[in-house]
Amino acid sequence: MPEIRRVILDIDTYNALKVEALVRHDNLKNTLSAMILENLSPEAHTILKCIRDKKSLKVQKSNHKCGASTAIEKSKQLSKNPDALNQIKTFWNEGERNRAEIARKINYPKATTSATISRMIKAGELRNEID
């Protein structure tokens, strides 16, 4: 049995769905499902197929490129990105001590950036005080 999720619709959308279900001679659930699946973009179809393939375990993870993976490129780990680490040092040495702002500038999560800065201070790569 498929999983069921609830969706909240505004009254105009709900009334339109009821009318469409009447026209199709079907229930609301089947009508909404059909309308959504009939109108997916090609990109959404690719990603949905990938998700289905992974769930069915028919595709080897190591040699399968998911549509979502190619659409959303993962960034390099901060600790393994020398350019980003050098940017942190530059911002820090120029007096920028707001870790959230540094994270935004280097395009990494705040928590990751803050933890990296703490490790760099502890290792002596950054000075904790403002000169």
Results as ranks from 00 to 15, higher is better:
Thr46Pro: 00
Lys58Thr: 10
Ala111Gly: 15
Met1Phe: 07
Leu126Met: 01
Lys76Leu: 08
Val19Gly: 00
His25Lys: 15
Pro2Ala: 06
Leu126Pro: 02
Cys66Thr: 05
Gln77Ser: 11
Ala21Val: 07
Pro2Ile: 00
Ala71Asp: 07
Arg52Trp: 13
Ile4Cys: 13
Pro82Val: 05
Lys110Gly: 12
Leu28Thr: 03
Ile72Gly: 02
Ala16Met: 11
Glu96Tyr: 07
Lys18Asn: 11
Asn81Asp: 15
Glu43Ala: 12
Leu37Trp: 01
Lys58Met: 14
Lys18Met: 12
Lys29Glu: 14
Ala71Pro: 10
Asp131Lys: 09
Ser114Lys: 05
Gln87Trp: 01
Ser114Tyr: 05
Leu126Lys: 01
Arg24Pro: 08
Leu9Asp: 08
Glu38Thr: 05
Lys110Gln: 14
Leu28Ile: 01
Glu20Arg: 09
Asn30Pro: 10
Ser79Phe: 03
Asp12Leu: 08
Lys76Ile: 09
Thr116Lys: 12
Ile11Gly: 14
Asn93Ile: 00
Leu17Phe: 10
Glu38Phe: 02
Thr46Ile: 09
Asn93Leu: 00
Ile121Phe: 04
Ile117Ser: 06
Lys65His: 14
Glu96Val: 11
Lys105Thr: 08
Met35Arg: 09
Arg104Phe: 09
Gln87Arg: 05
Gly124Ala: 11
Ser69Trp: 10
Lys65Val: 15
Leu85Cys: 03
Gln60Val: 07
Leu57Pro: 06
Glu125Phe: 00
Leu85Trp: 00
